[in-house]
Design a protein around this nucleic acid. Structure first.
Lengths: 207, 207
DNA sequence: TTCGTCATGTAATGGGTTACATGATTAC
DNA sequence: GTAATCATGTAACCCATTACATGACGAA
């Protein structure tokens, strides 16, 4: 099965962005870093090798044509390599977007996966959100336990730090709760309209 | 000057914890990860090599003695290596704690530096807090700018993610503001009591 | 013509994890 | 006696950054 390792988050982000529109590396990086804003930033030193790899794997093709204008006879200025997803690349993107494992909800990958949720199946979205939530709740519990254990004999700055961390994560959990609620409501509504269709044109029910 | 590179955050954390009390590696790691709770976690694979390096550099000493009990004649069970700061180590810790540079306010290092604020000079604390705040404000500004530029033509999940990120960072900035306020108030109060002492026993004022 | 930004790329390095190997001690 | 956890360590790998090298293009 070979399993293909290679850059998780970055690879997904590149494929995802290229799926929306063909682009060259420099632009890709800018879009990447505004997309992920607060969560992470990539440098050229990781982006270009990643593109190279994806190219070698046949996930993307490069277009060094300099587009429409070939003015007279002076077009040897190689520059601006536009990358584009191949069919294999689209397939791979789809596969990455369907995996609802730790890679999707741990700190490094969550932001990127979330950013492409509109291309992700509803059930996968839900599992990722729930996965992240339980991951965070684990952390909360362990920190709370530690805090209870060592209470009173901690200096005030440490306490301040731990409390701030705790509150930040609690806030994220509330955010996830809201998102999960919305996702579920959406699913139910879809189930409902499906039922309505069933009532309009009834089918075999029992199995 | 040689400059010594080596693990920034981890090294500081180890020295800081060992300053509070001698400890062996396993315990060190546990304390480390509860101390930093939400911010990061280290594995043995990074801790032990770090200890090794610190030992080689003479920042710490190891004690393989198994402590007080040497029952009769069966004490060859080497186990539990207790590490302890040397004078050099204390000096190094002090130096790390005095540096108020990017290493202290970027994501990777801030938590650790903050955790040992009670051993840090007041003016250094203030500069680190302000450094972090302006770092975060830079990010806020660039994301807000990007958000304004691409407004309306973004899908809802991306928007949701960016907003959540924005709010998280805004929250941290408010937290920093509060801390900075407290630090300044403290400094002013100390300046005040210093003045009062000056009034009690006046000295040369103009230079 | 020079400066800023766009644009592509590589080599060295860094800081960390995973998985593994080993063994002592404790609780049941 | 056996399982969990305490305890120490290493080697292979991973993902990314930094610093560098190169050069085109537009505006002042």
């Amino acid at each position: 099965m070979a399993a293909r390792k290679g850059a998780g988050a970055l690879e997904l982000a590149v494929l995802g962005l290229l799926h929306e529109a063909p682009m060259h590396g420099y632009e890709l990086r800018k879009r990447l870093n505004t997309l992920l804003g607060m969560f992470r930033a990539f440098s050229y030193g990781s982006l270009y090798p990643c593109l190279k790899q994806l190219l070698a794997d046949g996930m993307i093709t490069e277009d060094r044509s300099d587009e429409e204008n070939t003015p007279l006879a002076l077009q040897s200025r190689r520059s601006k390599i536009v990358y584009k997803l191949t069919a294999d690349g689209k397939e791979r993107l789809q596969r990455l977007l369907t995996e609802a494992g730790p890679a999707a909800w741990e700190d490094e990958g969550f932001g990127v996966h979330f950013a492409f949720f509109s291309h992700t199946r509803a059930d996968v979205r839900l599992r990722i959100l729930e996965g992240r939530r339980s991951r965070l709740e684990e952390r909360l519990e362990s920190v709370r336990a530690a805090l209870a254990r060592t209470r009173e004999r901690v200096d005030s700055y440490t306490l301040e730090l731990q409390n701030h961390g705790l509150e930040s994560v609690e806030r994220e959990v509330r955010w996830l709760n809201e998102l999960i609620g919305r996702e579920r409501a959406e699913q139910e509504q879809q189930a409902l309209s499906a039922k309505r269709i069933d009532q309009d044109m009834p089918r075999d029910e029992g199995r």
